[in-house]
Design a binder for these strands. Structure first.
Lengths: 248, 248
DNA sequence: TATTCTTTTCCAAAATATTGGACTCCATTC
DNA sequence: GAATGGAGTCCAATATTTTGGAAAAGAATA
């Protein structure tokens, strides 16, 4: 495992835990003690982490700086923001933009509704590709080779009663999503949470991201779904147009 | 130069430039070609950067995720936000919170005023410790050893007519800042930009950050300064209290 | 299509980082 | 105050990464 991979393990762990002592980082990462201390020292020097008076480490200011610049420079994020704000205003629901990376999706923009619901989400949240509406949308429009390979390497833990359980079922659902032009999540990752998502395309016609509205199942009732879907799809299409996409 | 340092050079360059081809990164960083390609490949795999169809690199989603978590977990930032919002409402000026790291200060929070001024700043912006109000405040209350060593290693380029030019002048000014409890910047980094800053202390009485209000010199006139200073100092004190600080 | 230029990959030698284990330091317990 | 145990450092042997140069693959031009 390279230094960089090890670094990511440590930073990700701190991102989750907030703060941790060296011993915990060593145990979690499995890096030999002596190397770990060298690595931590270097991360400190680079301002990626800091250490408080009790010796605990936490993420630090250089990461904030880099993350902020990365956000600003992500075109799709800035393009989507006004559209998602409108969508949120209309639906009153929590809205997200997610993008695909490697073997997962990540929220990169979150527009909160006033009556903040109990659904916990945050920018940077990692989403499974087969247990989230955004993930499934992103996966559905990946090039076939990528899609196949991801399906093949997915492990289908049964997280809730509705979690997709087999590669066949997933492939089938992705086909459905492509056909209808939008995806959904009916409590597949967290019970009682429902999402509707739609893909956003760039000028080259590739899927650049996916937007979703999220709500508790009492908010996203079956009656509402049709209307909601229409709004999400329309919003996604508007963003795509702003990104230079045009149908056919 | 270690892999991690090289990585930072590349990421920082992309943070500045937004996007760059491999050749440019190689030239800028001075990393040998073959190593650079290996490094870029690894950064791609980790989702720290991405590559568009033309081969250009840019910062990517894992950095957004890490930066976002780092922000959220920075207590002083969340504690300061409401106070700075109030300060902005009262003064109508751009407000910042900056923290110290190693040999520079960084903005970690920015509260913009409506009539957005021409002063360009952003979260993550790196500030010189001797040419900014926030930097000078942070430096003024560092432990003496740190302060001395930073003064000794500072290079005093004359960026504007008012830039502090010698170690002696800097030491003198820091003494003044400590005595009066607040700092200022009279176009020392950018001509025509004025700032007033005050230090924020944590429960242990250490300087944890500094807040500032920024404006063009026509906005921050001499008449206004006294009143502004009072407000900034009061705001900083309130934040310090929220962080558990108590005077003596 | 041939030619040139640029980008990217490949390789074995050289440089660098990593490692286990022993050691120091310091706080806590007996 | 001796004994225990955790945290952190140090070192020379070992493993890994880095490197320049050469070659391959692509792009751009003629």
């Amino acid at each position: 495992m390279s230094t960089l991979q090890r670094t990511m393990v440590i930073l990700e762990y701190l991102a989750e835990q907030g703060t941790a002592p060296a011993s915990e980082l060593i145990e979690h990462s499995g890096i030999p003690k002596s190397t770990a201390y060298l690595l931590l020292k270097e991360l400190l020097q680079l301002g990626l982490i800091s250490q408080d008076e009790r010796g605990n480490f936490r993420l630090w200011v250089r990461l904030i700086a880099l993350g902020e610049r990365a956000s600003e420079q992500l075109d799709i994020r800035e393009t989507s923001r006004p559209h998602l704000e409108k969508l949120m205003a209309r639906t009153g629901l929590l809205c997200h933009l997610g993008i695909f990376d490697g073997d997962a999706a990540y929220y990169v923009l979150k527009i909160e509704s006033q009556g903040s619901i109990s659904v916990r989400s945050y920018v940077g949240k990692r989403l499974s590709l087969h247990r989230s509406a955004v993930g499934k949308c992103l996966l559905a429009w990946q090039p076939e080779a990528v899609r196949e390979s991801i399906i093949a390497s997915t492990t289908f833990e049964q997280v809730t009663p509705t979690t997709i359980a087999t590669p066949e079922a997933l492939a089938e659902e992705l086909k459905l999503i492509r056909r209808q032009g939008w995806g959904f999540d009916n409590g597949e990752d967290e019970p009682d949470v429902r999402c509707v998502a739609a893909p956003v395309f760039n000028a080259r016609g590739e899927v650049a991201g996916a937007i979703s509205v999220v709500g508790a199942s009492m908010q996203v009732t079956d009656d509402l779904t049709a209307d909601l879907t229409e709004q999400v799809v329309a919003c996604a299409r508007n963003i795509s147009r702003d990104l230079g996409w045009s149908e056919r």
